[in-house]
């Protein structure tokens, strides 16, 4: 039972982290390597609210707004000139990640920080007591997934975004302001990354380089999932399950690379498997 709950909550956490990256990749066709840095920014928002003694929930909106603002600036000044050079965009956003990481280090130092949990205690699930917070993460993942589904299908912006995903040239010809769609998507993606950082903070320790391992994992998942949130959810569940199983029964160190290795193999053998899901 614990194993099952572990699998579900691990998948949920992977989904939360990867969602922002997927949104940006789907619309902009660009891999945002600053994703890890924004995650870190979000986690430090949680640190700041803790240090100021504010209500820890306050970190959520703070992180989203800060992430979206930074994302907006990044889109305008770094990503926009590089739309035609996707590999260079990876590098430039990675460079930005270095800059943000060093700024955080200059401000907060290299030390590891801890934050107060948003909620504590355990809860009984069918006879197994389980961390309440990890279950909350599952709810958060569901909320994010459903939120995106609603945004894409229920709003004008989402419809435009879908049009851009499918055929950008045509969308532009039909009078959709694709630049605005890109900007909005990038801001949402960055905000989401920061939000993920806040949610992650109580589960791990917070340090200036905490984003890097999450970035690589999320990147692999997004590559496998393509541009669909449904596929991402499936991929997170499958590979998350594999990770938990390997960590539990073999070794936690091998568990850490399970997602990356499985994703690489999946891409080599059946690149389109998940995209169809």
């Amino acid at each position: 039972m614990t194993l099952l709950l572990d699998i579900i909550s691990t998948a949920a956490i992977l989904f939360i982290v990867a969602a922002g990256l997927l949104a940006i990749f789907g619309v902009l066709k660009i891999i945002n390597f600053a994703h890890g840095a924004w995650l870190t920014v979000g986690a430090y928002c949680a640190v700041v609210t803790t240090e100021l003694g504010l209500n820890p929930w306050f970190a959520l909106p703070l992180a989203f707004i800060l992430g979206a603002l930074l994302g907006g600036l990044t889109e305008r000044f770094i990503v926009r000139p590089l739309y035609r050079r996707p590999l260079d965009a990876i590098l430039a956003t990675w460079g930005l990640g270095i800059v943000i990481g060093q700024l955080i280090t200059l401000w907060f130092g290299r030390d590891v920080h801890f934050t107060t949990a948003l909620m504590q205690g355990t809860v009984d699930v069918l006879g197994t007591s389980y961390s309440f917070y990890r279950l909350f993460a599952v709810l958060a993942a569901l909320a994010i997934g459903l939120g995106f589904a609603f945004l894409l299908d229920g709003t004008r912006l989402g419809l435009s975004a879908q049009a851009v995903i499918m055929n950008e040239a045509l969308a532009r010809a039909l009078g959709i302001d694709t630049e605005k769609v890109r900007l909005a998507t990038f801001m949402a993606g960055a905000g989401l990354a920061a939000l993920a950082g806040v949610l992650l903070a109580p589960m791990t320790s917070v340090d200036p380089n905490m984003g890097v391992p999450w970035l690589t994992g999320a990147f692999m998942l997004v590559m496998v999932a393509g541009t669909s949130f449904g596929a991402l959810a499936v991929a997170c569940l499958l590979f998350g399950a594999a990770q938990v199983v390997v960590s539990t029964f073999l070794s936690p160190i091998l568990g850490g690379i399970t997602v990356a290795v499985l994703c690489a193999i999946t891409l080599r053998i059946r690149p389109k498997w998940f995209a169809r899901a």
Partner: peptide, 22 residues
């Protein structure tokens, strides 16, 4: 795709580091 080669080039060092750790 070129992106796929980059993905693999990212996985290899990560795997190597973990092998060293274990």
């Amino acid at each position: 795709t070129p992106l796929y080669a980059t993905v693999i080039s990212l996985v290899v060092p990560i795997v190597m580091t973990q092998i060293v750790f274990s």
